[in-house]
Design a protein around this nucleic acid. Structure first.
Lengths: 158, 158
DNA sequence: CACAAGATGTTTGAAGATCAAATAAAATAA
DNA sequence: TTATTTTATTTGATCTTCAAACATCTTGTG
């Protein structure tokens, strides 16, 4: 393992743990402390859903099953973050939307993300930022191509 | 939010989800499919523990309580990945080590990480890679300073 | 139209992850 | 020796997730 590779690996693992940890901390205080990180991500996904706010769409966005989402939405409705509404056009469909409290929580969380990215930017020179954005863009696209439904990208060859 | 900021935010979120997803997929097939991502991280931590392999040490490495680790280790012993052994020097202490199967799973997972980093490197020019490593290095250090209680356990070893 | 097939959600039962508190056993300090 | 501290386990609670069984609704086919 050469040096660039090993430090990249090292840093990715670190960043992963640290960011989750920081997010946890940021959420565990304040007005919306009764929403866990996972629940906040559901709120986020609903907020970003727009018209694609059926249970199936939101579940797909989150990468969880509809059954799991049903459970999550039920508690978030109980906590006052989300609303359910049966569609009139297709009465099988359930539309999920943010309540005012849900909107506030979403905005709060978005602010956290913005501030975190701000901190990152302050740490980097403009040139570094540019390089990182370009590079991560390539990497993101690369990973995206490999996620949807394929195990093709990594095969165990025992 | 300017463009660099918003795409950085977007990409970090995507990368996060994608990498977890890919890791999940990589693990969910093959010989070690009965170990979840979390369980694999326990195996990893035990593998990297060396002499610091008491329940307390490993739990600290992972940033979980000893009670949680006890539960995790019990199922991993049942699945044949780990061994428990009472210390003779201090009979309160339980030492945890990898079984041959655990070693194999650890090696398998390490190879996954290596290959993922390899793919990243293939996507980037040498200049980009250099910029990213330097930038992430700064950001990692920055985040580390903000995560007081730790989990500073990850060590790269060839 | 009527019925089969398909799509959409909910419920339920199981497993895993995690914690805090209660407990047990062993080492160490007083 | 006795009290305190350290180390682990057990237990009961909550959360997250899935798959499978179920119910309901829509659509396609004869």
């Amino acid at each position: 393992m050469n040096s660039a590779e090993s430090s990249l690996n090292y840093m990715l693992v670190r960043l992963f743990n640290d960011i989750l940890d920081i997010e946890e901390r940021a959420l565990s205080a304040g007005e919306f402390a009764d929403a866990s990180v996972r629940e906040m991500h559901v709120i986020e996904a609903v907020g970003a859903a727009g018209d694609e706010n059926s249970m199936s769409s939101v579940a797909a966005r989150l990468g969880i099953t509809v059954g799991s989402l049903t459970v999550a939405v039920s508690t978030l409705v109980r906590k006052g973050y989300l609303q359910r509404e049966r569609s009139d056009l297709d009465r099988r469909v359930v539309r999920v939307t943010l309540t005012p409290r849900g909107e506030a929580a979403d905005a709060h969380h978005a602010r956290f993300h913005r501030e975190m990215v701000d901190e990152v930017r302050r740490e980097l020179s403009p040139e570094q930022l540019k390089a990182v954005v370009e590079a991560l863009d390539r990497v993101t696209i690369y990973f995206e191509q490999r996620v949807p439904n394929g195990k093709h990208w990594y095969q165990t060859e025992e």
